[in-house]
Write a protein that binds this DNA or RNA. Structure first.
Lengths: 338, 338
DNA sequence: TACGATCAGGAAATCGGATTCCTAGTTTCC
DNA sequence: GGAAACTAGGAATCCGATTTCCTGATCGTA
């Protein structure tokens, strides 16, 4: 913290014995200068530890080289990886990330939006906690919505492809010979619960497999996962089990489910195969057995959002919803110890 | 996204029929202007949706009204709440937060530091993944270290007071009549494991309570928590248990411990009371029974770091390590169902 | 040798506000 | 009624880098 040590371009110019404009040209490889001059300027800048003031640069460039990461959420389990992925990708484009978390408060969100506009960010990435579509924000710069898409189809959004994820799971279970599958969702009104169920139903039907019972909805807790297992089995034990597979809408549910199955003496996956969703490792790996699940690749999603935003900033805006194909992660809850 | 709609101060001036300097004075409540003039200007600004360019303002104010949040970590479980708490507190000071995650890569960190310096941030908050002291960064603006303190005692750092947390736990266990306590740590070389153990030993001794066995170290997984329970019990069952309490150094360990105890038919907390650490709710609440644990109040820690940084920016720097007292969260793993 | 073309580098304008300094009017007070 | 003290608001300067002009020097060629 060596205060007062702010070196300006004029300081470099003085040391190198040239004018400030020459320094600028030398360091930015523009204009026409003798190589010896450039070298002299570079050396002077180096020696003084000159770091050009980005504020001034922004002013004349009419670009801030900054993008806003607006998180509706307080950057929770889902939006956090998205934010990190985006931040990571932005670094490559020499862009900085302004973090703005709204915590579900529209007033805070509005305040943040104003602040981002005031800072003349080059663009904004908006993330949410759920995959529910959200109201778009109105700002005079490009915006990309990640995870939670914009309700305006003309906006650019990137979301995980839940249907594709579910298809991967069905394919996997079918390949393992499972034929009677039950579904346990989270909160009934949420897109994640519903889309996953609908895709499951469609895919099972397409393969002539049985969807056992009606979809069960509760919340997203392990506790509900445990209770749901009781509902699925309906008191049956031993060889009279009504299912040979349970698809849970999240790892948390699946982990609870596994715990309950074990308590009941039902072997996973020998008697019943179990799948989760999210690949939240603290759940999926800690589960006994570890869960076969779907990785939505949220970091990649954030990265993709950043790419789209950069393209938009450079004049090539995208529109519509882009669905990112997730990745199946196969573990012991379907494969067994082998 | 209504492009080209960037309103400048001259536009407002023209509409209000005054000079740009008058607009500036009117909107910032400076200078001496007739109230009617101020009102006219305000109205014009309002109508045009004028948002002053923060870049330009920064340039002349020689302040960016921005602080850097430099996370060594990729903003994981510990640094994330700190970052959020800080961001939250900064909003109140009309400061924006630039997010910079280094992901344990010194090169990336250096790059981010340079970018923050280039942007002339007013200050930087540095967070880490562990409570291990870290090398300070060298920049020409105030810095506050949060969670991971600076190794230079002259720097300002804010850390959770682990010793105080442990004291709370011992007090709690002693109050419940527990007398024979075992300790299960995480990774042996980490401060969190060691400090907690040492404090536990000291506090138990001070109260004439027994510390059973040697401290057990492994990793931070649930699996290790389960295995450690076997080591603690050493095959004993029924009324011959060697302990009536186990202090785990994290919720994850404690949760694994509870699972194992239940499998062995040991009742928690009737036979053995269990405590965790961190109050990571997805663990502490999902555990059966829910965990008595210590909340380090990481958000408050981030908030406090922001306060110290703001004070430093305003010319009143702090120095030394400030320890934030954590909060005991008592739940069923020591209290029982009551 | 001379004249146009090319080149190196400097002077000045620019980005968009904030702030300092002035200058007309208007009050105030003796 | 005239000088001193305010007032309201505008003109000019500044923040620090980029960029556009522009000038003097060098080069090439007829």
């Amino acid at each position: 913290m060596d205060r007062g040590a702010v070196v300006r371009i004029t300081d470099v110019a003085a040391l190198a014995g040239v004018s400030p404009s020459t320094v600028s040209k030398a360091l930015n490889d523009t204009g026409s200068l003798r190589e010896s001059t450039r070298a002299r300027v570079r050396e002077a800048a180096e020696r003084l530890g000159f770091v050009p003031d980005a504020t001034a640069r922004s002013l004349s460039a009419r670009r801030s080289f900054t993008v806003g990461l607006l998180s509706t959420d307080s950057a929770g389990r889902f939006s956090l990886p998205v934010v990190l992925g985006a931040e990571n990708a932005l670094v490559g484009g020499e862009l900085s990330a302004l973090l703005a978390t709204a915590r579900h408060d529209p007033v805070r969100e509005q305040h943040h939006v104003r602040a981002l506009v005031a800072r003349r960010v080059d663009g904004i990435i908006v993330t949410g906690r759920t995959t529910e579509p959200r109201e778009p924000i109105r700002v005079p710069m490009p915006v990309v919505y990640a995870f939670a898409p914009s309700s305006d189809p003309d906006d650019a959004s990137v979301v995980p492809d839940d249907a594709a994820g579910m298809r991967l799971l069905v394919e996997h279970l079918a390949g393992l010979g499972r034929r009677r599958i039950a579904y346990v969702g989270g909160r009934a009104e949420q897109a994640a619960s519903l889309v996953r169920y609908e895709t499951l139903a469609t895919e099972l039907a397409a393969r002539g497999l049985e969807l056992v019972g009606t979809p069960l909805y509760g919340d997203w807790s392990e506790q509900w996962g445990r209770r749901a297992v009781d509902l699925v089995l309906g008191g049956a034990v031993g060889s009279g089990l009504p299912v040979d597979g349970i698809v849970f809408a999240s790892d948390q549910l699946a982990r609870g489910g596994c715990d309950r199955l074990r308590e009941l003496g039902v072997r996973v996956p020998v008697d019943v195969a179990v799948t989760g969703y999210d690949d939240w490792e603290v759940m999926s790996l800690a589960s006994r057995p570890p869960l076969t699940t779907v990785d939505m690749q949220l970091e990649r999603l954030g990265q993709r959002a950043a790419e789209l935003l950069i393209a938009a900033i450079e004049g090539e805006p995208a529109r519509g919803v882009e669905r990112l194909t997730p990745r199946l992660v196969a573990r012991a809850s379907t494969l067994g110890d082998g």
